[in-house]
Design a protein around this nucleic acid. Structure first.
Lengths: 264, 264
DNA sequence: AGGTTTATTGACGGTTCGTCAGGAAATGCC
DNA sequence: GGCATTTCCTGACGAACCGTCAATAAACCT
């Protein structure tokens, strides 16, 4: 199965990785508009035609970059779901993974919007498009399983008309909406909201409270859970993202704050 | 104050409106990428240079289109807030306005993302940018006042650490996230979610339940409120959007469904 | 009418995308 | 190694689009 690659084949493989690295770097530093095929070619030391041998269009190249990070996101979600604890803690762990991913790959969501808004699906390799879709399904699958576990264990009782899908879609919308807001507000002088992230964490808990998912945020400190997830499941990644327990970034925990005030 | 315009000035005014109309049409039909300055010029029967006398760049033109619809959205929000009823009904009315706006101007959110993602703020006329920002503030202002009213009337009691801003930001994120999802899913074959809109309506209510905003969705049929808002506040617009009471589009109302099952 | 200001035009330079004929390099075969 | 075949690489090229500007036309004013 493990076929030794010829030097040439190896070179081609490496080159593709280097193009992707370069694209990701430029994407992060200067946005999707700055990723030009000529620039990629020059940066990697080949001609433009060669770049087009790897990626059928600019959108395809960006999709390939996205695919790498989308896979990482799905892995983060899957690892988060393994957090030992009650169902709602595990869902919060997935939320922490989403936040972590956004901190590590701030360009991902932006690029995904750019490529899907400005392009025709036909410009992207079918396999890559399917891969991207599969990553999204993996993320939804993780969330879906946790919700099902919650129902099975009695932590969550859905009202008539409510569905498992609804819970997952709501959380997804809340998160992507917040990420979108953060990206858009980079452009205006006086942002509507100073820092959407802590608010997002708090609102996700409010949303789960709305379903009556036990234990409610008034009965459990999910801010502390969030911190434990970062420490125990993602110590390395949290360090990279500057989110480590040492208290770098504020972690939203109104419930926790409320609780602590009771203990004072 | 009302200066009679010379024929020439009138012509220039009309032309600007026609360019905006054409841009809006193309934007809706074929996306932001299809709005080219040459196309606009030809469509309106002038040269490109003349188009540039009205709009300093392509982004500026798109921003001008957005400004028109953003103003309409703010007006819809303001009208919705005048719905007579309890605070939470009024907030639901704003939600209905948001849904209505998205049905009437499906291209708005998409264009806003495109222009803010792909452009430098400098390419847009300062006055226009400020106008756009002002429209967003008006929308947030409407929501903020309703939340304050709810607190004043005792319908809503925020837990320690929770803020008025948080409620508004959460709803905004939920809605923009759902709109984003609907736009993105146009591109993939097998959508993750068939129709995000009814789910969105239900989730907004779940979110407000999470804050304990009275009356809870288990005690009031907000699906019916939504319907009344369309009938009483937006009869004309709802007709245009195909959302009229006759039962065209499904209105999410799990709480209502639950309630009805009690009454059976 | 004639001079001045303002508006309009379309050709032009610049950038980027994606293609392709022709040349270079790798591969396979003896 | 030598040679034929396949595969890969190159950079010039056409097309699309943006935004500019000198020249031209129209509008305005007295």
């Amino acid at each position: 199965m493990v076929r030794p690659l010829s030097p040439k084949q190896q070179e081609i493989r490496d080159r593709e990785a280097r193009i992707l690295d370069e694209a990701q770097t430029v994407l992060l530093a200067r946005g999707a508009g700055a990723v030009t095929m000529d620039r990629m070619a020059t940066a990697v030391g080949v001609s433009k035609g060669t770049v087009y041998q790897h990626f059928s269009s600019k959108e395809d190249l960006l999709a390939a970059v996205l695919l790498r990070s989308a896979d990482i996101r799905a892995r983060l979600f899957e690892r988060a779901a393994s957090f030992p604890g009650q169902s709602r803690e595990r869902m919060s762990a997935v939320g922490a993974a989403a936040e972590l991913f956004f901190a590590l790959y701030p360009q991902h969501e932006q690029a995904e919007r750019a490529i899907k808004a400005a392009s025709i699906a036909e410009k992207i390799d079918a396999g890559r498009a399917a891969g991207l879709e599969a990553c999204t399904f993996r993320c939804f699958g993780v969330a879906t399983r946790i919700v099902r576990d919650a129902i099975a264990s009695g932590d969550l009782v859905l009202a008539p008309g409510q569905t498992v899908e609804q819970v997952c879609v709501g959380l997804w919308n809340l998160y992507t909406g917040a990420f979108l807001m953060r990206d858009l507000e980079n452009f205006i002088d006086e942002p509507v909201v100073t820092d959407p992230m802590p608010i997002l964490m708090a609102n996700a808990q409010v949303f789960l409270d709305g379903f009556g998912w036990q234990p409610l945020s008034s009965a459990h400190d999910y801010g502390e859970t969030h911190q434990r997830v970062l420490n125990e499941i993602f110590p390395d990644e949290a360090g990279l993202a500057g989110l480590d327990a040492a208290g770098g970034m504020a972690v939203a925990s109104p419930a926790g704050a409320a609780r602590r005030s009771h203990l004072d």
